[in-house]
Nucleic acid binder design. Sequence first.
DNA 1: CGGCTAAACGGACCGTGGTCCGCTTGTATT
DNA 2: AATACAAGCGGACCACGGTCCGTTTAGCCG
Lengths: 196, 196
Amino acid sequence: MTHLLPLADEPAPERADAARNREAILAAALRLVRTRGVGCVTMDTVAAEAGVGKGTLFRRFESREGLMAAVLNESETAWQASVISGPPPLGPGAPPLDRLLAFGHSRLRANLTHAELIAAAGRPGARSAAAVSFANMHVRYLLGELGVTGDLLMLATALLAPLEMIVLDQQVNTDHIAVDRVEAGWDDLVRRVVGA
Amino acid sequence: MTHLLPLADEPAPERADAARNREAILAAALRLVRTRGVGCVTMDTVAAEAGVGKGTLFRRFESREGLMAAVLNESETAWQASVISGPPPLGPGAPPLDRLLAFGHSRLRANLTHAELIAAAGRPGARSAAAVSFANMHVRYLLGELGVTGDLLMLATALLAPLEMIVLDQQVNTDHIAVDRVEAGWDDLVRRVVGA
DNA sequence: CGGCTAAACGGACCGTGGTCCGCTTGTATT
DNA sequence: AATACAAGCGGACCACGGTCCGTTTAGCCG
C-alpha cells in the first residue's frame, strides 16, 4: 500500500526537486519579463537563468504560452483577491452597480497594462479557462444582485467581451481612442444592459 | 520625367512578374488551406506549390499572418459585398433592427466557420484594420437608423466584441454552449442596447 | 536592338519553439 | 545501508518562420 489515506485520486504528488525547479523557472521568467520585456524572453534564456535544461521548462509548462500564462497568473491572482476581499467599491461593501463599474474599470486597466503578457499567453492556456470563468461568475453575481433577469451567462459575457485585450488594443493602440472614452463607453453599455 | 500623369503619389506600380507571382502564391495558399487545413500549411510548402522562392512570399505578404490574412480576405470580401448589396435582411431593404440582427448572426457564423484562419491571421494584419472598421461602420449606421443616441462608436464596438472569434471560441469550444444560445444572447444584448 | 537600372527573385542561413531519449536522482522498501 | 524503480532531467536534435544578399530580369531609353 503506497498511501495510508488514498483520499480521492490525487493528481500528482510532485517530487521535491521538481517543485524546486518549477519555482526556480517561474522566478527566472518573472525576473526576465520584468527586466527585458516579454518579447525578449526566449525559452533558452529562461532555462539558462533558472539553471535547468530546456526540456524541464516544457515538461512543467507545456509551452511558451503556458509559461507566460503562469507568469501572468501571478498578478491575476492578486487582482482576483482584491475583487473578492479588497476595499470597496471593487471589493464587497459597495452597492452592486458601483462594484460592477469599478470591476470594469479595474479589468480594463489591468488588461491594458499586461497587454503584451496576455498576448504572449495566448489561447490554449489555463489562463483563459480560469480567468474568464472567474470574471464571468463575478459579473453574473453582480447582475443578479441588481435584479437583472434573462440569460445572465450571456449577458455577463457580453459585458466582458469589450474588455478583452484584443478589443482594447484595437481601440487604444490602432484607433487611438482615449482610455477615458472607452471607459465611459463601457459604463454606458452597463447602464443600458441593467436597464438603469 | 518618369510619369506623364503623376497624379497623387502612387504607392507602387508593381512589376508584371511580381503581380503574377503574387497571384500564384495566393492561389497556392488558398488551395493548400482548403485541402490540408490551415495548420499544415507552412511557408516552404506554399513557396514550393507556387513555384517561387521563400523570399518572394515574405516580400509580398510580410509574414505568415499576412498571407493568411490575404487568404481570409478572399471570403471576407464576398461577405462584405452581401452586406452592402445582397438580399435582405442582411442587405439593404429590411428594417434596421432586422438588418442588425441578421448582421450579427451572419458574422457569428462566419467567424466560427473561419476560426482557424482568423487565428492564423492574428493581430497585426490589414485584416483587423479593414474588417473591424467595416463592421463597426455598418453597425454604427444601423444604430443611427434606429434612432439610438450616444457614443455610437463605442456602442458599435460593444455589440461587435461578443462576436469576436476569441470570445465565440471560448463559449462554443471550451464551455460547450450551443450556438443558438449564443445567438439568442446576442439578440437580447442588441435589444437592450437599442432600448427596444 | 543593345544597354542600363531599379526592382524582384530565391535559396542559404539563422533563431526560436518544441520533441525525444538515454542518463540521473529522489523516494520507498527491506 | 543497500536495492529497485519510477519520476525527473537536460541537451542534442528537428521544423518552421523570417532575414539577407548575390544574381536575374522587366521595363525604359537612346
